[in-house]
């Protein structure tokens, strides 16, 4: 890791001022992605501005029909939060499936979505729930926030302060995780809202995206059979050593169906082991996972 200047501002104003004085400074949240990138010299900054002293950016509260989570709140706090579990259990489960427990103790919501890793979990939750990202300058709808691989609309001196998640009728996150990295090979967040169904897909493409065809079908009929006639094109999806674009396209459908089944609290046509059993008789009760049934999938919940 190349050396850098280290700053730990005591206030948001100080942090913003330090950033505005130095074009090449980067914000440090939990550091679970940034520090490894610096160590591998995949990134280099002349200074880091550590947000760790800004306690006001950490915390979870319910405000009316929203769960509001501070940008510096670690994943473990979201995963273990009774307020989140009551209001949006799918979000608590998503947070509880990120990385490993030691990473969840340190990594933060704000850091995750600012980094916008194409295989990260939180972007699917933020986009799937139609959350609002609040920054030092403005509020940004999730639909406008993620624009590409590791790319958001955040401006260089803009700092995320909190994310406001609307409480929806039902939601679930289904993730086929890459077992070594625990990132999503494909992860699908499904939310049934008063305005219709939202489906957000992470891990499959250069950026998290909404799966509009599935949304339309599920808005008409919130049942995984509504997806039987739908496929997603492999063109444009990620292809790498772990999975081809075709495999990911297949996984998107499987994970979407599983998420719908979980959100609707019915058995899935796609079993928990990763094989699709289209038209098959249900033989797996997803509410009583057997030991090891979570091997291919983390962060699931039932509602």
């Amino acid at each position: 890791m190349y050396d850098f200047e280290y700053h730990k501002p005591k206030s948001l104003d100080d942090a913003a001022a330090t950033l505005s004085q130095h074009e090449d400074f980067k914000l440090l949240a939990g550091g679970m992605s940034l520090l490894p990138a610096l160590k591998l010299r995949l990134a280099r900054y002349s200074g880091l501005v550590d947000l760790g002293a800004l306690g006001q950016l950490r915390g979870i509260r319910r405000e009316g029909d929203e769960i509001v989570i501070g940008a510096m709140t670690p994943h473990a706090e979201v995963a273990d939060s009774a307020a989140v579990a009551r209001a949006i259990p799918a979000l608590a489960a998503l947070a509880g499936g990120i990385g490993d427990p030691l990473v969840r103790n340190r990594g933060t919501l704000g850091g995750s979505i600012a980094n916008a890793d194409p295989a990260a979990d939180y972007p699917a939750g933020v986009l799937g729930l139609g959350a609002t990202v609040v920054t030092t300058r403005r509020t940004i709808a999730a639909d406008k926030f993620f624009i590409g691989m590791f790319e958001t609309v955040l401006e260089p001196r803009e700092i995320i302060t909190e994310v406001r998640f609307p409480i929806v009728e039902a939601a679930a996150y289904s993730k086929f995780r890459q077992p070594a990295s625990r990132f999503a090979l494909v992860g699908v967040f499904v939310a049934r809202t008063r305005g219709g169904v939202r489906v957000a897909v992470t891990g499959a493409a250069p950026s998290v995206f909404r799966f509009k065809e599935a949304e339309e079908a599920l808005t008409k009929q919130f049942d995984s059979t509504a997806l039987d006639a739908i496929t997603i094109a492999a063109a444009g999806l990620n292809s790498d050593i772990h999975a081809s674009a075709e495999y990911r396209a297949h996984c998107v459908m499987v994970m979407t169906k599983r998420a719908v089944a979980k959100a609707a609290n019915v058995p899935s046509p796609c079993n928990e082991r990763g094989r699709v059993r289209q038209g098959a008789t249900m033989s797996v009760n997803i509410n009583t996972p057997s030991p090891g049934s979570s091997a291919g999938e983390r962060g699931s919940t039932y509602r």
Partner: peptide, 18 residues
């Protein structure tokens, strides 16, 4: 792994200055 303010963290990915 060490405990930072009582919480388990991976100390290879925490800055000393933090």
């Amino acid at each position: 792994t060490v405990h930072l303010n009582g919480t388990g963290v991976k100390s290879c990915t925490v800055l000393a200055a933090s």
